[in-house]
Design a protein around this nucleic acid. Structure first.
Length: 329
DNA sequence: TTCCGACAGTGGGGTCGCAAT
DNA sequence: ATTGCGACCCCACTATCGGAA
């Protein structure tokens, strides 16, 4: 039955991945993809090429990334389609960089498609992952700088190349990517659900930090700690350099314990040698730089080398503050 | 009974626009 | 002109609760 050529297919909520708890799954039941650092987006295309891009929270990205509309050209052969993928900002070397996406200073922007939910009159939500992937491979974007089909690797494919999942993770690290997503080969697509069929394995770095201050929390965290101000020593000058804040990863018990330990260390002035940005410093309580904690972070910000996507792990009473140096990675 | 998924609420980084200074 | 603030966007994490197992 013919549909209006400009009819864009109905929206489908993106399926979400579950954190894998640090255990990278391995075995023939799984397939592996790189985890892209960008904006998750569903791309819906009408037979005539009319395109609608929607974010995870159903916000419209169509006008924000106009270069992605119609980028598939004739590749769909006049069929309607619904694709799942990631909008990624690329630097001048073609490498994905989330920071560029946020401050809107990208060199180029591309849509990395990793799933197909609908093509022509057919819906593939119930088709196994592997089958959807085969169908997706059948689409050949005319300009891979604009729309690309991301690679995927069955466990067996990796083995043939003498590679293990851990080896692929090393590849992701070398390419400065976000990590891996492990997908069950036979799994169907569960719209809007956070499913264990998709397991995300982010590359995280663990580092030790000196606690130089804290800001009070709000709402449920009223009366306790909202965020900790972090630092580490410059190995050359020995200065305590401001590294950013951490405001997540605490249990209630941790917050209570920290509060009790930090109160006796309060002082009037910032212990950091460099200036803490005004909005970070507002309302801050400064601390004698003695306590050491452990945080995980995704990467360092390009300009000032601060920690990005930081989460608290716990105190390191075994470490001395003076030993803590700025992470170099 | 235990476990898991959905939800709400907190925090981070960022941009944008408006009002107060 | 600058600053403060809240509204957005993305994200991660914890606490809670109700229903499934």
């Amino acid at each position: 039955m013919p549909e209006p050529a400009d009819r864009v297919p109905a929206a489908i909520e993106p399926m979400l991945a579950t954190p894998d708890g640090g255990t990278l799954r391995a075995g023939p039941a799984y397939a592996y993809e790189f985890k892209w650092d960008g904006y998750r987006a569903i791309m819906r295309i009408a037979p005539d090429g009319t395109t609608v891009l929607t974010s995870r929270n159903d916000n419209d990205f169509t006008t924000r990334f106009p270069q992605l509309s119609g980028a598939l050209g004739e590749a769909l052969g006049g069929r309607a389609a619904v694709l799942d993928g990631e909008i990624v900002a690329l630097d001048e070397h073609g490498r994905p960089d989330f920071g560029l996406l946020q401050n809107r200073s990208w060199h180029a922007v591309a849509y990395f498609a990793f799933d197909v939910l609908r093509l022509g009159g057919e819906t593939f939500l119930d088709a196994p992952y592997e089958e959807r992937r085969e169908i997706l491979s059948g689409i050949e974007p005319p300009d891979r700088q604009l729309v690309a089909i991301t690679p995927w690797y069955r466990h067996g494919d990796l083995a043939e190349q003498g590679l293990t999942p851990a080896g692929l993770l090393d590849v992701a690290r070398k390419m400065m990517l976000e990590g891996l997503v492990v997908k069950a080969r036979t799994s169907r697509y569960h719209p809007g659900r956070r499913s264990p069929d998709w397991l995300k394995h982010p590359l995280v770095h663990t580092t030790e930090v000196v606690l130089g201050g804290w800001r009070p929390g709000q709402g449920r965290r009223e009366g306790t700690i909202g965020a900790l101000l972090l630092g580490a020593h410059d190995p050359e000058s020995g200065d305590l350099r401001y590294l950013g804040d951490v405001g997540t990863g605490f249990t209630d018990a941790m917050l209570q314990d920290l509060q009790a330990r930090l109160t006796p260390l309060e002082r009037r002035t910032s212990p950091f040698a460099d200036a803490v940005p005004r909005d970070r410093a507002r309302g801050a309580h400064w601390l004698e730089p003695e306590m050491v904690g452990e945080v995980v972070y995704r990467r360092l910000t390009p300009g000032d080398g601060r920690l990005r996507h930081t989460a608290w792990r716990g105190l390191r009473p075994d470490r001395k503050a003076v030993e803590i140096e700025v992470p170099s990675h």
